[in-house]
């Protein structure tokens, strides 16, 4: 992993690491990947990926409304809001 890859990763994750600490971060990540990469020694051809251990299917609910309007509470607890909306720094399109 190089610094460009790290920077891309930081952008995707919306995280920030100071320029001077980036090498250290790369090293830490690489150490973990060294452990992870031991997977490459396994013969996995016959195994299908497993998403969820119980492999349940067909869980759904009927289309019935439950009104749990908590507008005031949600807005009040948010970092910034006005009477009607969550307020954020200008979104530049």
């Amino acid at each position: 992993m190089n610094k460009i890859e790290l920077k891309n990763l930081l952008f995707l994750s919306r995280l920030r690491v100071n320029e001077e600490d980036q090498d250290k971060t790369i090293e830490k990540l690489q150490n973990t990947f060294e452990m992870i990469d031991q997977m490459n020694d396994l013969d996995l051809d016959k195994f299908e990926p497993l998403n969820n251990p119980l492999e349940l299917t067909n869980v759904s609910r009927s289309d019935k409304e439950k009104n749990r309007n908590k507008k005031e509470e949600f807005l009040e607890k948010s970092p910034k809001s006005d009477e009607d909306y969550f307020v954020v720094p200008k979104i530049v399109e």
Binding site: R14, L15, K77, S78, P79, F86, P89, K90
Partner: peptide, 19 residues
């Protein structure tokens, strides 16, 4: 992400707010 609840840092713009 600092938008709806939880910690929000002081920031000049949205992208800085996230980071």
């Amino acid at each position: 992400d600092g938008i709806k609840y939880g910690y929000r840092s002081e920031a000049k713009n949205l992208s800085e707010l996230y980071l």
